[in-house]
Nucleic acid binder design. Structure first.
Lengths: 256, 256
DNA sequence: AGTCTCAAGTTGTATATACAGGTTAGACGA
DNA sequence: TCGTCTAACCTGTATATACAACTTGAGACT
């Protein structure tokens, strides 16, 4: 990594996000005010303001003039499918994430995997299969293929501790991701790993991620239809945020 | 509306967005630099900077240090599930859209519908049920509830000619939409209308749309799992657009 | 007890200024 | 002619300062 430091407003954002996703700050909790950040971090108020304002735009924080800044509930504005790391997603809900590694081996790319990654048949890849649990309940089977020359450490990394998603984005910055969502009937192995009922459909996300101008990883993410859903909040570009909208209750939508 | 003026950075954004959406500024065209905005609009550079920076975050503008600011390619801001109108979506694929109206009646909101729309039980709503066809093949059952006082013309409109989505956005501007995606087992009626196989799962999108600070319509969109999927392209905020990536081939991803 | 006012703290915005670093075109010299 | 250097412009960030508007609680007053 180059020794270039991140800008200070970004450092502030990172620290606050870390405190939220670690659970230290719960939804509704008060976040340090601009003036408190000025004193504790030795930045100007404009810098603290930018950090808090961007956290608000990104849905982490809700601000009320005259009262203060608070951790937003429910990731109010996270875009559908923006989630890159299921561990963060589960942590943001205040739950406990764990995972078990089913497969971690070097293989040669065949058929559709080679095609998805834009490489020749037989190119070396690392094939990972993990099951992710939320509070002990299985919620995702991650079946991932990574270009071997992109992430040579993939075979040795302990993916029970660091999710592949987190590891890969630490190796190189994510540039773009394409995704396809479909409903499907799971195969027997997935069905067993997710402890699904016989007639239960699964929600499958196919995700291909690009880095350095080429696709580097391709994942199939299987979820149990009865225990998992994708949520999203869409605001058309250029729309002024309605100040009254405050916190939108996705819960009531989920119960329908 | 109160006579409160919008903040100046927002006025700047509005003016630039207007020039882009009117076609005066085409993708790739140069946008006024910060210093030019300072002179032409009598604002400080920090204000011009904020306007251009937020336009960048929202995907309207691409900035290059040392060169200038340019109108971004339109594709950059399309997010998953941004599709509001299935007729447009089908037309964009070069296919033919048609639809048949199954139900178009006035009802009283009950249970979950009343809850989703934030109204009392018994409030008058219009209940619409349509089947949408792509090249004659059914691809969506739209089960929609609209607040009667929001769109009184809903009972008379010919929804075989204009989709409810298109009609509603012509009545009032869309502000926000919440969406939930899940896999489910369709009920018998949906199964028949979509001509689905017995064991085929369905992909269901629940969508609640806000206008004027209140929810005005709530729709359940059922799709056959074997013939429909949601696709998306995600670019993390703040990422420099890779100029080479151009048009990404989703097709190869779909075949997996 | 109830009401009013005001001070302190908060967010939101706007400005002037400063410096670092990328990009480009043109001047200049070999 | 070719390469190099520099000046001019651009974005990106950081700071100090200022004013407006909102919220809350404490204290004064009736």
């Amino acid at each position: 990594m180059a020794g270039v430091e991140k800008p200070r407003y970004q450092q502030l954002k990172d620290r606050i996000i870390a405190r939220i996703s670690s659970g230290e700050l719960q939804p509704g909790d008060r976040v340090p005010s601009e003036n408190e950040l000025v004193e504790s971090s030795s930045v100007s108020r404009m810098t603290a303001n930018r950090a808090l304002r961007e956290l608000t735009d990104e849905g982490y924080v809700r601000r009320v003039a005259g009262r203060g800044s608070f951790v937003a509930d429910l990731r109010a504005q996270s875009h559908v499918l923006e989630v890159q790391n299921i561990a963060d997603e589960i942590a943001a809900r205040g739950h406990t994430h764990s995972s078990s590694v089913i497969r971690q081996s070097k293989q040669n790319a065949r058929g559709e995997v080679a095609k998805a990654l834009h490489v020749e048949q037989g190119t070396e890849i690392v094939h990972l299969t993990l099951v992710h649990y939320e509070n002990g309940v299985p919620v995702q089977v991650e079946d991932r293929h990574v270009l071997a020359d992109f992430a040579p450490g993939c075979l040795d990394e302990d993916f029970a501790a660091t999710t592949p998603s987190a590891y890969l984005s630490s190796v190189a910055p994510l540039q773009e991701a394409e995704q396809v969502v479909r409903a499907a009937i799971p195969n027997a192995a997935v069905c067993r790993q997710l402890q699904m009922a016989d007639d239960e459909p699964s929600l499958v996300v196919l995700r291909r991620t690009w880095s350095g101008g080429r696709p580097v990883t391709f994942a199939r993410l299987h979820h149990p239809g009865s225990r998992y859903e994708l949520t999203g909040h869409y605001i058309p570009p250029g729309t002024a945020r309605s100040p009254s909208a405050d916190v939108v209750q996705l819960e009531s939508l989920k119960q329908c």
